[in-house]
Structures are given as structure tokens and as C-alpha cells.
Design a protein around this nucleic acid. Sequence first.
DNA 1: CGGAATGGTCAACCATGTTGTCGATCTTAC
DNA 2: GTAAGATCGACAACATGGTTGACCATTCCG
Lengths: 175, 175
Amino acid sequence: MVDHSVGKNVNQVVDSGKAIPDTPGFELPLLLFGAFRTLIDRLHARLAEEGHPDLRPAHGFAMQAIGTGGATASEVGRRLGVSKQAAGKTVDRLLALGYAERTDDPHDARRKLVRLTPRGRAALHRSAELFDELRAEWSAALGPDRVRDLEHALRTVVPRETAFRLDAGTWLSGA
Amino acid sequence: MVDHSVGKNVNQVVDSGKAIPDTPGFELPLLLFGAFRTLIDRLHARLAEEGHPDLRPAHGFAMQAIGTGGATASEVGRRLGVSKQAAGKTVDRLLALGYAERTDDPHDARRKLVRLTPRGRAALHRSAELFDELRAEWSAALGPDRVRDLEHALRTVVPRETAFRLDAGTWLSGA
DNA sequence: CGGAATGGTCAACCATGTTGTCGATCTTAC
DNA sequence: GTAAGATCGACAACATGGTTGACCATTCCG
């Protein structure tokens, strides 16, 4: 696997004002993704233990998009950056798993409001708690300041809207 | 969308040795993923401009797994953490796009060596350069030290093997 | 030699995404 | 008040990429 043997973190050498390349750039995305993945994997491992074995990362994002107040499939789609059809399918999945329910909107016969079930709300709430715990673990391992700085750094470098897009599956593969 | 209104980055307040929660934990994965995504998106935007519009993130990972020396589909599968069949399909895709080629292994009639075509090698090489450029941009925006510390922090927090797994698509969704 | 591993491929199936179409239902402009 | 337009949800067809399971060919090894 690559074996460019980035190895022991070759430290940068600043020579005469000119920086010698330290870490190859391709490590950055790998680390970012690895970190993301680690967090999500651990979250779902815990959730699975606690009675949500069928919940997948994508579902968490979708539930987040539905929110406590409920939303229509189209809205969910817009929030997640996918088509309303795709959002509809995800909602179907959530329905089947018992995390959401669909109700008619009395004010607009076209719309069907998707709401989280108590189980859905519980899972969402628990996820938030677990993420806090996970962050606390990182704080313990790295020191609170470094975690904060990491967040701050990332926040300045990633465009605000980018975070929540959830066409992730397709985005990685191809469409 | 959540609207816990994390807003302006509520700074932590340390009171009497007890830390008041600053950033909600769920921001961390979002930032991590957003950062990853930003990097990859920009890479592929550039690659597309430079004549590789059909290259998807997944292909980059696969080519990385094939490496300069070539590999069999099974090996690719192992490196990427997916089944040999899945790896085979991805290789097929790469073949169709002209980034790889399949040749028989003279030493072992079972194996079929997958090798990158010149075009594939060029794309891989260019990707490495672009990643370096992207990293340099981050260094300019954040300061080289912060980027290095970010990498260092992530490296201590993500298990070594996690980085390269590329069942990512499925991993996010459900399988 | 002959059985176990290994490599590649086929087939069926799942989960997600996409586009296009369509009927039903607001909304808005005349 | 009504007709044109926008929006919502759903269906269908299709692409990707992942999974298992089954099979055959080949190689390795006792």
C-alpha cells in the first residue's frame, strides 16, 4: 500500500527560507478521512451495542436532516444535497427501520411530513452524547487545546456548506 | 439542519477546573469529512480540467492500490479492504477508462496482473503533485505549523490501518 | 499424486444515486 | 375565477459499487 514509507513523520527542515517538503500532500486527505471514519465507526459500534445495530452513517445524516421538527422528503433532499427521489428512498429506509414516520400535512395535500419516531429521536440524542464523549476522548489524548485548534483550523479551511452534503456515497464512487 | 446554532464558535469557559462544553462533538466528524471532501473535490476539479474528467475518487484509491508495480485484483481487494470481486469490478472500470490494463502473469497462469497505463501513471503522479499544492495552500492559510500539528494530531488518533480502507461507499451506506 | 489454497469470473441481490415522467395540488397572475 | 406554473411525491429505468455464493483452473504442498 503505497509504501512511499512516509514513515516516522519526517520533520520539515527549513533551510534558507525555503521549506523542504515534509509530509507528502496525499497523506492529508487520508488522515482526514481516517479520522472521520474512526469517529463514525466508533459511534456506530456503540449505537449497535445499545440497540441500534441497523443504523448506518447515512441514516444518521438523514435523521439529522429531518430534525426534531420534521421535514418533507424534498426538504431532506435539499439539505443533503441529493435529489428528492434519493431522499425519498432514504426516508423509506428509515421508515422500515422504525426511525421515522410519514404523515400527511393537513395544510398541503401534496406534502407528506416525515417525523422522527421516539426511537429516532432517542438515537439522534444518543448520537450527540456519544460524539461528545468521543470528542472528550480526543481531548484527553491530544489535549483540549489541540482539539480546539484542529476544529478551528478545519473550520477556516472548509466552506460552510460543504459539511452537510450527503451524496457522499455516490460522490465517492461515480455519478 | 440541526440548528443547535453552534454559531460563532462559542469559546470554552474554564470555570473551576471543570470545563464547560465548548464545541458540540458532532461538529468534529462533519469538519473532518468536510475537509476531506474539500480536498478531494478540488483535486478532481483540477484533474477534470487537465483531461481526466471521468476519474472519480474511488478510482484514485484503486490506482493507488495497484501501484506502480502492478497488482492482481485479489491484492487490490485486500489493500482496499473489499472483496476480490468488488476489486475486479473497479479494475474493469479502470480498464474501460484507459487507466489500467490486464496482462497474464507468465509465472502463474491463474493470476492476471493489473498494471497502470502511462495515462494511469500520469494521473497518479499528477494527483500527488496536486495534493502537495493543496497542502501548500492550507499551509499558507493556516500556517505551516498548524498543518503539521493537525497531521500529527490526526496521526495519533487514527489507527494506522484505517486510512486506506476503501469500502467507503458501502461503508457509508449500508452493507 | 491428490487435496487444500488461491485467483478470476459469473450471477444474483442490495443500497444509493441519477434522470425523466406524471398526476395531484398549491400559488399566482390576470 | 380560472388558467399557467411551480412543487410534492411516486414510479420506472439505469449506473455504480459492494456483498455472497458457486465454479473452474491452477499452483502448492504433504
